[in-house]
Amino acid sequence: MSTAVERAAHAYCPRCHPDPQPGEVLTALCGARHPYWGRRDRPVHTCPACQALASANVYACGHPGG
């Protein structure tokens, strides 16, 4: 995985991770696993894979997307 994606803001399924706590390792929509450090309203960098997957009708985990 490139460092650009490593530093990118990832999107997460809100049903799989309804109330993430700081430091909890989450699986992003793109499959990357990272500790959670809070939601960013306007991230400087956005993971392009997560950005594309976030608009899907159903996420890879099987939960409704959108």
Rank of each mutant, 00 (worst) to 15 (best):
R33C: 10
A28M: 08
T46E: 10
H10F: 07
N57V: 12
P64C: 10
A52I: 13
P18R: 11
T3H: 09
V58D: 02
G65S: 09
A52E: 14
L29C: 02
W37Q: 02
G23N: 07
W37D: 04
H10A: 00
A28V: 02
L26Q: 03
D19F: 07
P20K: 00
G62Y: 10
A49V: 11
R7F: 11
R40I: 11
P64W: 06
A49F: 00
A56K: 12
Q51E: 15
D41H: 12
A54H: 04
A60E: 13
A56G: 06
A56R: 14
Y59R: 10
T3C: 03
Q51N: 15
A56I: 03
G65T: 03
M1E: 08
A56F: 08
P22S: 04
Q51T: 12
R7M: 13
V5I: 14
A56Y: 09
D19C: 08
A9F: 04
S2G: 13
G38I: 09
A8W: 01
A52M: 11
A8Q: 00
S2T: 13
C50N: 02
A54L: 04
R33Y: 03
C47M: 02
V25Q: 07
R40G: 07
P48D: 15
Y59S: 06
Y36N: 05
L53D: 01
A49K: 01
G23K: 05
C13R: 02
C47F: 03
C50G: 03
H63A: 13
P18E: 12
Q21H: 09
Q21S: 12
C30V: 06
G66Y: 05
A9P: 00
H10C: 05
A11E: 01
E24I: 02
R40K: 12
C47V: 00
E24F: 00
D19T: 13
C16P: 00
L26F: 07
P48H: 14
Y36I: 06
Y12R: 03
P22A: 04
L53Q: 02
A8T: 00
A28K: 00
E6N: 07
T46M: 08
P20C: 05
H63M: 13
G66V: 09
G66S: 12
E6R: 10
P18A: 12
E24G: 03
A49T: 10
W37S: 02
S2Y: 06
T46C: 09
P64S: 14
R42S: 13
A4S: 13
M1L: 09
Y12L: 11
H34I: 01
C16A: 14
Y36D: 04
V5Y: 02
C61E: 09
R42N: 15
P43F: 11
A49P: 04
N57E: 15
T3Q: 09
R40S: 15
